[in-house]
């Protein structure tokens, strides 16, 4: 009966197409890496002395925010958002620094394990509250950011404590070649070790499914509530890693949350993760963090007021979104 004029069938499969479609899907991240390379070259040009020290500084300065961005990316992919990441980082950081202070390396290792589990639990609590109360995730996680930050202050009212020396050694300094900061290696390895197996598993698919289309996911047999809780728990886990990184890179624990929550949202958006959920990955945001940090460094080299870096960050964030919105509406019109 009704004539459907839409073309039926799909283009045949072939390897080149598969590569193409991968490239298409990852075009944003690839573009970011390109931008990163250009920025590095640019930096070298404007600041010929930029070298090992600069790269090492870059590595260490992006570490906590890098993990925060990954944490945010996971939950945003699953269609949520977590405004308590900064607080969870503060809480895990002070707990780690307080417990490790003056203790043996072995004990420090146990603390690290314990803090990671704590991160999972904090995240799972966030997730369970979102699922059970059905209050919008923004509100729940905003409220929980007070709670976790409060606990952090209860643990330690002022910055202090200490990180196990091995933990600091893990992230500070070069890895073999002086050009390769350990921090970058740690960031990539930790994220890869945790995220890649999950992303490849059915659970990973479920995260994307829930973020992409909740009804379709439900009908495909994905347990929505459980998947959301897992997403928040993973976010908690990465936030805990971020907290450890904070302790490791500063050698103390700071109970007051840094700007990581909101900056992680910015990094996620710049990193090509759709705030509507279901699209993007965790590495794009990491590259976005590097890009933002280099821009900040470059502005210093160009003897701009460093505060313009913040302005630039805001303008870039808004600009990217406006660009995305304009492209989207042009595509829709066609």
């Amino acid at each position: 009966m009704s004539a459907v004029t839409a073309p039926v069938g799909a283009p045949p499969a072939n390897p080149a197409r598969t590569v193409m479609s991968w490239a298409q899907r990852s075009s944003w991240a690839i573009g970011l890496v390109g931008l990163l390379a250009i920025l590095l070259v640019f930096t070298k040009i404007i600041q010929p002395s930029y070298g090992v020290a600069g790269i090492q500084g870059l590595g260490i300065s992006i570490l906590p925010l890098g993990f925060a961005a990954v944490a945010q990316a996971v939950v945003v992919i699953a269609g949520g958002i977590d405004l308590s990441i900064g607080s969870m980082m503060a809480l895990t950081s002070v707990i780690a620094a307080t417990l490790m202070d003056g203790q043996s390396a072995e004990f420090g290792l146990a603390v690290v394990a314990g803090v990671l589990v704590l991160g999972l639990v904090l995240g799972a609590i966030n997730g369970a509250l979102v699922v059970v109360t059905r209050v919008p995730d923004i509100v729940v996680t905003l409220a929980m950011s007070f709670v976790w930050a409060g606990f952090a202050l209860l643990v330690r009212a002022a910055p202090g404590g200490a990180a196990s020396p091995w933990l600091m050694n893990l992230v500070i300094g070069p890895f073999g070649n002086p050009w390769i900061p350990k921090a970058a290696i740690v960031l990539v390895i930790v994220v890869a070790v945790i995220w890649i197996p999950i992303a490849r598993s059915r659970m990973g698919l479920s995260l994307y499914a829930v973020g992409s289309n909740q009804l379709a996911a439900f009908r495909s047999g994905v347990p929505i509530g459980r998947t959301k809780i897992v997403a928040y728990a993973l976010t908690g886990l990465f936030a805990a890693v971020g907290g450890l990184a904070l302790t490791a890179s500063t050698s103390i624990g700071t109970p007051v949350p840094g700007p990581y929550t909101l900056e992680s949202v910015a990094a996620v958006v710049l990193g090509g993760v759709s705030l509507a959920g279901g699209r993007g990955g965790v590495f794009g945001p990491v590259v976005a963090v590097m890009v933002l940090q280099i821009i900040q460094n470059d502005m210093t080299f160009l003897s701009f007021d460093p505060n313009f870096a913040l302005v630039a960050q805001g303008v870039i964030l808004i600009g990217v979104l406006i660009l995305g919105s304009v492209l989207e509406s042009r595509r829709a019109r066609r």
Binding site: A266, V269, L275, L310, Q313, G314, V315, L317, I318
Partner: peptide, 26 residues
């Protein structure tokens, strides 16, 4: 940004707060 370009208010106001804070610092 929110009305014409449909940027999510959370992000738009977040970005604007970066801009305002940076300019205030300057």
């Amino acid at each position: 940004g929110v009305g014409v370009f449909r940027v999510h208010p959370l992000i738009m106001t977040l970005g604007m707060s970066f801009v305002v804070l940076g300019l205030s610092n300057v």
